[in-house]
Design a protein around this nucleic acid. Structure first.
Lengths: 186, 186
DNA sequence: TATTTAACTAAGCATTTGCTTAGTTTTAAG
DNA sequence: CTTAAAACTAAGCAAATGCTTAGTTAAATA
């Protein structure tokens, strides 16, 4: 009855995601998205409503990818805290492209989502999932009080955010050192 | 011979700094600066050349303020690592205004300065100064190898960046916990 | 007091922003 | 083959962006 879409939404969202990841939300214009996604502005608005809609889908795409390629391996691992340490390294690998560190799209976006509650929810949701996972892993190793588990899980989350920011400025060795010290007393 | 300026540059830069701190570089328009600084656009351009010029001066103002109100007290303290821990708390106090946490202007700006080398230098300069200070404090407490001092000083820098990001999302208690665990590790 | 220099005001410039609309092409059902 | 619904193209909209310019006012010096 009607014409078919000439693009696959998930494919163009992946391209949008990389554009947002590279430049940030505000520095990415709809013209840039048009170019990078390879579709007309009209199609962008028809498929995703507005720029915020594209951004939200991009965050979700990133989140799912990070979930599948990094977090799920951590969750499925039988190891305790050592596998969280490995998560940190895997995340660092994941967060660079052609040796250009770009940090974590979710963490970077914390600075850009003041007027976008849905995006903020996406970010908090992943942080919570990660925190719970860290908590479980911490619980595997030693007997710890509930309070200490919470404290150390939060600590790991914030450390990861620091690592995300720092990956924009520091070299690999310095980041390695950070991870090592982070896990010394946990 | 000529008319006097109706404003003091340092005073209007302080106002600009708070505007950038609150909104970030890209989300701050020259019209907003005009309003917040209380002077005409022409005066902004006459005094500071362009928007980047205002931003750079704002970063320098922030840096000097942080230096005087937080870092210098750390440097002058006779205590060792405990005073670094206190620096973290002082920084958190410094980084909020009317209970609205805003993180660290320098750290926040890491995401906004891709085309501004001078601004990047300002940020790196302060990080280096801080790292050296941390290094000195760490050296006071115990005998440590040079390599370990470097490692732990870097660790504290990255932890501080994490704290800056996290201060936008977490509550006071969680941030307290982070600081506590951070210093268990060194 | 007259002159000269710089600081001011406010209007306006070209460009870019997010988004829309008018009109055309594709597709599948009737 | 006709029809109708949706996907396309490209031009264009109002508003916002960073920055400039033409013209006015203030003040220190001669």
């Amino acid at each position: 009855m009607s014409r078919r879409k000439a693009y696959i939404e998930e494919e163009v969202i992946e391209k949008a995601m990389y554009t947002f990841w590279k430049n940030g939300y505000k520095a990415t214009s709809v013209r840039m998205l048009e170019k990078e996604m390879g579709i007309n502005q009209f199609s962008i608005y028809a498929s995703f409503k507005d720029k915020d809609g594209v951004f939200l889908k991009s965050l979700q795409f990133y989140k799912n990818k990070l979930q599948q390629e990094v977090l799920s391996k951590l969750i499925n691992s039988q190891q305790g805290i050592e596998s969280v340490k490995k998560y940190f390294y895997d995340f660092l690998e994941y967060s660079k492209e052609e040796d250009e560190f770009k940090g974590c799209l979710l963490t970077n976006s914390v600075f850009e989502i003041e007027d976008n509650d849905e995006a903020a929810s996406e970010i908090n949701e992943f942080a919570t999932k990660l925190r719970n996972c860290f908590r479980d892993k911490l619980a595997m190793d030693k007997k710890k009080t509930k309070k200490l588990l919470d404290k150390q899980a939060n600590y790991l989350i914030v450390a990861l955010q620091g690592l995300s920011v720092a990956s924009k400025m520091l070299d690999k060795e310095q980041l390695d050192d950070f991870i090592e010290v982070t896990f010394n007393n946990i």
